[in-house]
Nucleic acid binder design. Sequence first.
DNA 1: GATGAATGAGGATTCATTCAT
DNA 2: AATGAATGAATCCTCATTCAT
Lengths: 212, 212, 212, 212
Amino acid sequence: MACLLANMERWPRALPLVVEKRDRRQDLMRSAISVFARYGYHETGIRAIVEEAECAIGTFYLYFSSKADCFIALIDALYHQTMQAVMAERSEFSTAEAKLRGSLSAVVEVLLRERDLTRVVLVQAVGADPLLETHLWHIHRTFADLLAGELEECGLGPERSSLGAWAFVGALAEVFGLWAREPEQNLEEMARGVRSLFWTAWGLENASDGPV
Amino acid sequence: MACLLANMERWPRALPLVVEKRDRRQDLMRSAISVFARYGYHETGIRAIVEEAECAIGTFYLYFSSKADCFIALIDALYHQTMQAVMAERSEFSTAEAKLRGSLSAVVEVLLRERDLTRVVLVQAVGADPLLETHLWHIHRTFADLLAGELEECGLGPERSSLGAWAFVGALAEVFGLWAREPEQNLEEMARGVRSLFWTAWGLENASDGPV
Amino acid sequence: MACLLANMERWPRALPLVVEKRDRRQDLMRSAISVFARYGYHETGIRAIVEEAECAIGTFYLYFSSKADCFIALIDALYHQTMQAVMAERSEFSTAEAKLRGSLSAVVEVLLRERDLTRVVLVQAVGADPLLETHLWHIHRTFADLLAGELEECGLGPERSSLGAWAFVGALAEVFGLWAREPEQNLEEMARGVRSLFWTAWGLENASDGPV
Amino acid sequence: MACLLANMERWPRALPLVVEKRDRRQDLMRSAISVFARYGYHETGIRAIVEEAECAIGTFYLYFSSKADCFIALIDALYHQTMQAVMAERSEFSTAEAKLRGSLSAVVEVLLRERDLTRVVLVQAVGADPLLETHLWHIHRTFADLLAGELEECGLGPERSSLGAWAFVGALAEVFGLWAREPEQNLEEMARGVRSLFWTAWGLENASDGPV
DNA sequence: GATGAATGAGGATTCATTCAT
DNA sequence: AATGAATGAATCCTCATTCAT
């Protein structure tokens, strides 16, 4: 995914970075997100992706070594964006609790901003393919570990921290799944509701010095 | 749903009942669970299923009209078992809170008992196929609605109830996913941890008249 | 099917001979005619035949060694009926021309009486299967030779006789095909029209001592 | 009928045109004709077609959407060639009778030129498949109607015209069937014999200003 | 870089036939 | 004689990937 600024701005730009000059790889990833989000991994053919990107099948293989490789690139893109956002946000605060709140906010914000991509990663990728599984799971684990670490710093025991982190990730994914299937649901509200639900579960006061 | 026995035994026997004389459909479902759990929906060929069940390909189609039909039968099996367990357990208690605790326990018990099947349904079925999606989602919704109803009876507002129900389902699924990929994890403990996590989140006291 | 008066009769009995006691083979042939006529050889499964005959698949193989064998039995049934009718009719007349007229009449009468069966043999059997082909063609040839012989006796040269015979068979088959696809057509009229068309083609007067 | 060129050559070239650079679709159609002619629709596998055309199975599906689609393409090819020939020939004459004779000649010429293809269309396609049936029958009907129209213009009543047209088509098909099964038969002679047979049947003088 | 025709392994499904009961 | 569950070879078709232009 590359990119990722290095400037003032708190949030890296969304996936479709400044499109100075038609970037084929970007085009293809955008197409892929849109098509995968609609039809799922197995139901999506390379043809559908390149048609949306308006290029030839051969071109696809110039930028990705396989369908799975492309999918992994999407997973990674979301991963990197989220990680950056989390890191940027964390650095703004000093107390463990504020950092945690910042992390959760950052995650939720990025996922909300990249809805289609999130839908692809959290909903479509799950039973897709052993290869993707591994990759996807690595990321789940990374996040869960990150959150667990922060929870521990907030004073929860290691067991509760780890479990809480996994549960949070799962709950967020479910809510995305719900929205993906019933788009009339208010995704923002649900996502923030999940955050506050867990806040309570973890016995942290609904403090107010952090981000919304 | 329907039926919902009401006989002596609290739990209906697990799927693989003691079979007097070899029941082909049962055999095939057992095989299917085992193979789907290992390789996922798309990576599983009918051949693999029938080989494990020690019968011919044609025999498979004697009992299921298609691969998807077989998968749906698995989803339904888990659904019915869980529903029965929930209903049976609920009837044992009178207060809303105890009923809720009973429901959660029952769900967790059944899923723990039918680990492979649960893995298939919660992990492998997700991005599998539009047809399965629909069916699977219907079931998620049914459970979420059931739990949401109970939460409301416990005094939570409708919004929090609904969201809490979905989040619970998601968290449980994630924990199963974790166990499915890293079987050294203690599934029982995690599942019960999730239950108590949400118990706290919902602001219910850790009462003691219900099941563990 | 049905019909078939009783005795004096000029025509040998129809396919469903006296049904003293439920004859399984007859039942199956009747079913087969009905199903083949509707769906064609390849589109018809053994299951459809036995369902109509209200017996089990195994039973079918008690009376026929294969699907093709059954089909051939139908072809032969029509063949024998027609041949008998022709022979019976011929014996009524003495002049070559009257005999010819009798033959044509007899053929047309039988085919009209056994519409479904004729439809199966003349329409559905054609591109069906190499095995059937051979059998079916043997019968076409037998008839064509028979007619050709009679035409020669009427004074046509061998070439014209043979060709005329084949053409007659083809024309009759086409008319049956037309009726099979567009049943509102008047089959009787067309069949008799074909007969009189050829009569003219062969330069025979529309004599009147023969059957209509 | 469309197109209907009007260039120097009276007959459009036969299907297997001289191909500058190997045309895959042409190759496949040629193969298909040859294989279908030998084994029939149902006995022919895609594999056999592509082996003869020396390409891969996938290539077949690049040019035809299915086996049936390919077969229909063959039917249409013969149809269009015949129609073009008929139209071209008709335009050469002015009297109704001469036009009719021209039509019959043209039909016979094309069928004789495209023997294998004709064999496929007239013999193998018959009981093949509901989809093909419909298509094939549409063409039979088109020809029969065309001929019937011409017969009416020659003064035959509508009934006799229509019947005569169908009978002619059937007779021609039978003769082709004969030749297909017993290739030592003289197809040209038989086809022309049929034409003259019907000429007589229709009471038209054996005029001489038309094509042979 | 860009193209898209060509490839062919692989998958789901059907159905005529058998045979133990 | 009658049954119908079991069989598995055979078939059509898809689609990710390659490579010559």
